[in-house]
């Protein structure tokens, strides 16, 4: 496993109006590994994830200070093009959110808006993304069907394919399995572990078992503060922080 830092979060503070949601959060996310952000619900873990690709920009009341450095550049620097940032940092949401288009067009959407290749190339890239997302075998004969005809688990893998089709280096997953049945969840988790060879993956989850199964590193958030971070194995077996220990023992929801 490569230990090289891909994303460095430094002194990150976020306010929604008068609410101080993230307090001085700082830790490193290594390349080509799965990093899990854990914590009880409402601790700010999704908000933290959405800082990385600046999705919080869409919320007018959000105020952010501190830095998130990807490849040596602060994503909040005025020089950074947020559109380009989001192409380089893909995201999959809590609930599958395919567009009301065909399966093919869903995956092709990002390629088309960024003008990545002619129609032959788009076709090839769509296939590659669907193969990587472990969905190709299931949909190759029905690419023109509406994406809503897929099952929930398939829809979520489709969203993953859509995210990786544009060739991001980093993939953010926001509780991607929370709306899925156990079987689909297992399939998705396998996929996540496979994908880390090519991508740096950050996953938000409130499910500790899931974090233990898929992640190499993890960060534990509590009421907007970082309680602890490190190798998953170490955080789970020898937590340094009392709050982490309580959470692992099931003392918080």
């Amino acid at each position: 496993m490569s230990g090289e830092t891909r994303i460095a979060i430094e002194n990150l503070n976020l306010h929604f109006g008068a609410n101080h949601v993230l307090r001085d959060v700082g830790f490193n996310i290594p390349a080509n590994a799965v990093t899990a952000i854990m914590g009880p619900s409402g601790c700010g873990k999704s908000t933290l994830l959405r800082c990385i690709n600046r999705m919080n920009d869409l919320i007018l009341s959000a105020r952010i200070t501190g830095r998130i450095v990807i490849d040596g550049e602060n994503v909040y620097s005025p020089r950074v093009d947020v559109i380009d940032l989001r192409r380089r940092v893909g995201m999959v949401f809590q609930k599958p959110n395919p567009f009301p288009k065909s399966i093919f067009e869903n995956v092709a959407f990002g390629l088309r808006i960024h003008r990545l290749g002619d129609s032959g190339e788009i076709r090839a890239r769509v296939e590659k993304a669907l193969v990587q997302a472990n969905l190709w075998e299931e949909v190759k004969d029905r690419l023109q069907d509406n994406a809503f005809s897929l099952s929930g688990g398939q829809q979520q893998r489709l969203c993953l394919a859509r995210a990786i089709a544009v060739g991001p280096e980093i993939v953010l997953l926001d509780e991607p399995a929370s709306a899925l049945d156990p079987h689909s969840t297992a399939k998705l988790e396998e996929l996540i572990v496979e994908l880390k060879r090519e991508y740096t993956i950050v996953i938000v989850t409130h499910n500790m078992q899931q974090a233990a199964r898929v992640s190499d590193h993890c960060a534990f958030l509590m009421l907007g503060e970082l309680a602890e971070w490190g190798k998953t194995e170490q955080v789970f077996t020898k937590p340094k922080d009392k709050r982490t220990e309580d959470f692992l023992m099931g003392k918080f929801g």
């Binding site: 999705m55 869409l58 559109i83 949401f93 609930k95 567009f99 990002g110 808006i113 960024h114 544009v166």
Partner: peptide, 15 residues
């Protein structure tokens, strides 16, 4: 139109 459609597009780098 659900907000999740817009988020999906923004997350792909759509303007």
């Amino acid at each position: 139109v659900p907000q999740s459609y817009r988020e999906a597009a923004y997350a792909l780098g759509a303007t």
